[in-house]
Design a protein around this nucleic acid. Structure first.
Length: 641
DNA sequence: GTTTCTAATATTTTT
DNA sequence: TATTAGAAAC
């Protein structure tokens, strides 16, 4: 057997060290392009090869994509036959938590069929809660309150505990009232939001020692990817799981922490050595991706941050080309510059799939898109509205949720009048409060309600005897959903296509029993939000936010909109902490590039319907001049800065 | 009860 | 500028 050679083969000294340090706590500080995933997967493969049972190993990621990639790599290292299906847990934190919670829902006061509410559902419930409490939504924007509540949940602060901390100030008091009302409504609907999935598991582990012990015994070897992105709840879960056997390996890079706004706390990675004093630290600083010039530029930028772990990336590759810096008149000029450059690169033989255009905000994609369209350059925009977030898909999902979780008021509310069937808001309330007067069918509304109930019970009995995809077809037909969509607007066709897409997506679950299939479908719909199902990269340029680019690499990277107020974003300009996150974001953008980087900014820019004039981004002046190449015609604009 | 219009609002968002 | 949520009108 040469499996061992193939697992360790090709790894550098440090990577090998990280792979072989299987017992005890290990912190792997992995710079961009340093073979982080490779090391992590080799480590797991090595454990299995050493004889550790796959079911005793867990690897936690943040995205399904990362989990998939890891699984694939482990398989190719070991050969698929060595891993019994489902034995090795490689998945997201949320997926793990759902699995735990379906087991232990009752102990926490939920039914095992609980619904998972996305951010939209959550916001709706928060608004309801605010209305119920008589709180002015103008004075307290619901979205902002939701963020605060989300932050509290990430910090594992319950409404009760927050009551003590809130004091008598207006704002915290209001937040507390909404938080309490929101939590009640969630419970009433037997639903959890994304934050609850984590918080409830953390609470379960804390309260129920025997449950925790069982998982501690099950997961002897714990791995966490992107550790800098963990929030306090995730940190608590990992710590609890690892407490007993202490075989915990975390991988991450504090310099790439860009999700602070979502509750991620990169101090978790900075404090790892304090949490686990005997931790072995491995620094992966050899970069296999970029030229030294790109690495130097990135390093200069990130060095302006104060809170960080020192590490200097190096590469065996040569210096490579300088970064190109260009000024444009406005965002259209910038987009044309990008598109023209891509076109000439393409003519010189560059592959379009190896080119990415990165921007700070999604709205910036528009100008780029137009320039690409004009030149017939193929592109794909990553991000924006996700498939499962589309109205039509959410409608169908709401039906399925009501069928599987009868308590789900959020979904019931969504479908009771979708398509319109003559049941209004008032009767919705009476629908909930009435139980004895079910025979009162004399009014129109009562008749409509009765018809709705018949529909639901018909659907419920049909669900168990049809394959998921057939059932959804049946559901759509029965509810005359297509007629409802067909309102004459130009989106109607597209919406219907999405419904059809959803049907074929549901066919993936046809092998399971009808009920199991629908349940799994719902779970995946909530937890693996894919962008465009079935859309592959192909030979085209990728347009996306810098956030979305994390973990990816391209030969050529354009970073556009490098202006004060755009990148760094205006909302971060007055907070040193936020500015540091912007800087890390810039670092992430730069280090996506293998060979070439094009930086650009616009002198004027249309934003929010007006014209803005912003100076070039401070990040540009943080890159040493000798690493930059500035086309002559732009010299004036740039030296003015 | 449903449609249409107005007015407010506009980072990033792995789940 | 574009979207979208909530109010007024049908």
């Amino acid at each position: 057997m040469h499996a061992k050679d193939s697992i360790l083969g090709g790894l550098n000294e440090r990577q090998t060290e990280a792979v072989l340090a299987t017992d005890g706590p290990v912190l792997i500080l992995a710079g961009p392009g340093s073979g982080k995933t490779r090391t992590l997967t080799a480590r797991i493969a090595h454990l299995i090869q050493k004889g550790v049972l796959p079911e005793r190993i867990i690897a936690l990621t943040f995205t399904n994509k990362a989990a998939e990639e890891m699984r694939a790599r482990i398989k190719s290292l070991l050969g698929a036959e060595h891993i019994p299906y489902g034995a090795l847990f490689v998945g997201t934190f949320h997926a793990l938590c759902v699995r735990v919670l379906r087991q232990h829902a009752v102990a926490l006061g939920y039914s095992p069929h609980f619904s998972i509410f996305d951010d939209d559902d959550a916001l709706g419930l928060i608004k309801e809660g605010m209305k119920g409490e008589g709180i002015n939504t103008k004075q307290f924007p619901p979205g902002m309150i939701r963020n605060v509540i989300s932050g509290l949940k990430n910090e594992l602060i319950s409404p009760e505990r927050y009551a003590d901390e809130a004091g008598s100030d207006m704002f915290p008091k209001t937040v507390h009232r909404v938080y309490r009302a929101y939590a009640e409504r969630l419970k009433e609907s037997n639903g959890m939001d994304f934050d609850d999935l984590l918080m409830n598991v953390a609470v379960l582990f804390e309260r129920t020692q025997n449950v925790l012990s069982a998982y501690q015994e099950r997961f002897l070897y714990i791995h966490v990817d992107e550790y800098q992105d963990t929030n306090h709840a995730q940190y608590t879960i990992v710590r609890a799981l690892a407490q007993k056997h202490r075989n915990i390996a975390v991988v991450g890079d504090d310099a790439q922490a860009i999700y602070g706004f979502r509750g991620a706390d990169f101090r978790n990675i900075l404090n790892f050595e304090k949490d686990w004093p005997d931790a072995k630290i491995v620094v992966l600083d050899e970069n296999y991706r970029s030229t030294q010039t790109i690495l130097d530029a990135a390093r200069e930028v990130i060095s302006k941050n104060t809170f960080k772990k020192e590490k200097k990336l190096w590469t065996k590759q040569g210096k490579g080309e300088r970064l190109t810096l260009t000024a444009a008149e406005d965002e259209r000029g910038e987009a044309e510059y990008v598109a023209d450059s891509v076109r000439s690169l393409h003519k010189e033989g560059a592959k379009l799939r190896e080119v990415a255009v990165l921007y700070r905000t999604n709205a910036q994609s528009r100008a780029i898109e137009e320039a690409f369209l004009e030149r017939d350059l193929p592109y794909i925009i990553i991000g924006g509205i996700r498939f499962y977030e589309r109205k039509e898909i959410k409608d169908i999902i709401a039906y399925l949720r009501v069928l599987t979780n009868p308590q789900d008021l959020v979904s019931l509310k969504r479908i009771i009048n979708t398509p319109p069937r003559g049941i209004g808001k008032i009767s919705f309330l009476s629908y909930l409060s009435r139980d004895t007067k079910g025979d009162m069918r004399h009014t129109k509304k009562e008749a409509a309600l009765a018809a709705f109930e018949d529909l639901i019970s018909d659907l419920r009995s049909t669900l168990v005897r049809m394959q998921p995809s057939d059932f959804i077809k049946y559901l759509v037909k029965k509810t005359r959903y297509r007629e409802y969509l067909d309102d004459g607007t130009q989106n109607a066709d597209e919406r219907w296509e999405n419904v059809e897409e959803f049907v074929s997506l549901a066919a993936r679950y046809n092998d399971l029993s009808p009920e199991e299939g629908i349940k799994k479908l719902l779970e995946d719909a909530a937890l693996l939000m894919e962008n465009e199902p079935g859309e592959s990269a192909g030979e085209r340029v990728t347009l996306m936010t810098v956030h979305a680019a994390k973990g990816l690499e391209f030969s050529t990277v354009f970073i556009v909109g490098l202006e004060e107020g755009v990148f760094p974003h205006s909302k971060s300009l007055f907070s040193p902490k936020d500015l540091e996150e912007e800087r890390r974001l810039c670092y992430v953008g730069l280090t996506r590039a293998k060979k070439r980087v094009y930086l650009s900014f616009a002198l004027r820019r249309m934003r929010f319907g007006g014209i803005e004039v912003n100076p070039p981004s401070r990040f540009l002046s943080e890159i040493p001049e000798e690493l930059l190449h500035v086309p002559e015609r732009d010299l004036d604009e740039i030296t003015i800065d």
